[in-house]
């Protein structure tokens, strides 16, 4: 039984690494060839787990081969438009100028129920207000309403808005978050002194502390108390 446990753990690690190399796409964003490879990897990797009499390499080698195949197809798709069209297909316009293009809908095997569901998900249920609805190659529907139906942007309204601040968690569950500190070039000692000045005995009492590049601070301690403040920009800089 120990062998099965070890094999399973190893296969999990290999699959995990394979998926990490494949990228961070979610299931709904996968292209057809990516879905096939993902399904196959899961299937072949499970072979040695299912059957204790099958050597580990019978799962490892096919997984690695599929990973290499994926990298190759990705590269080919990137370099050749023809191959990209062949392997990924091309987007289809399902709604144009507020009218359903039924032939295209049928060609894609898309039911009207699916279409309505996707439209509801995108918040556009009035077909007459849609300029374009495009079925993307990964199966997602992009809905572009008429300009008159689209929400106004601050630019169109000629309103000045400031860009959102970049927030980084510098303290997590009573401990410094190294990557967060590095993101904003924060000095640990200055931050620690600031926390003590707020009346805390140590940073261990802090649940979360986020800092923004504009000096905004949010703190919540482990007792549920919160604190927000606007400090000088670069206040904690090392």
């Amino acid at each position: 039984m120990i062998n099965i446990i070890l094999k399973t753990a190893l296969i999990y690690i290999i699959l995990f690494l394979t998926m990490r190399i494949m990228g961070q796409k979610q299931a709904g964003q996968l292209q057809p060839y990516e879905i096939v490879i993902t399904l196959l990897i899961a299937e072949v990797a499970a072979t040695p787990m299912d059957n204790p009499g099958t050597p580990f390499i019978y799962g490892l080698v096919p997984s690695i081969t599929l990973l290499l195949l994926y990298a190759l197809i990705n590269y080919v798709c990137l370099k050749s438009k023809t191959m990209r069209l062949f392997l990924c297909g091309k987007p289809s316009i399902l709604i144009h100028n507020g009218k359903l293009l039924y032939d295209e809908i049928k060609k894609n095997g898309y039911s009207l129920n699916d279409l309505m569901e996707q439209l509801r998900m995108s918040g556009q249920t009035d077909i007459s207000s849609i300029h374009y609805a495009v079925l993307e190659t990964n199966g997602q529907l992009s809905v572009l309403p008429y300009a008159s139906e689209a929400p106004l942007t601050p630019k169109q309204m000629k309103v000045h808005v400031s860009d959102p601040s970049f927030y980084s968690a510098v303290l997590l569950d009573g401990q410094f978050n190294t990557s967060g500190l590095a993101n904003l070039n924060t000095d640990k000692d200055k931050l620690q002194k600031f926390i003590i000045n707020l009346g805390y005995r140590s940073i261990r009492e802090i649940l979360l502390l986020t800092l923004s590049d504009n000096g905004e601070i949010f703190l919540q301690d482990k007792f549920g108390k919160t604190y927000t403040a606007q400090l000088k920009k670069g206040y904690f800089n090392a």
Partner: peptide
Amino acid sequence: LISLLPHQ
């Protein structure tokens, strides 16, 4: 060989 071939 046990790591290369089916155990059967």
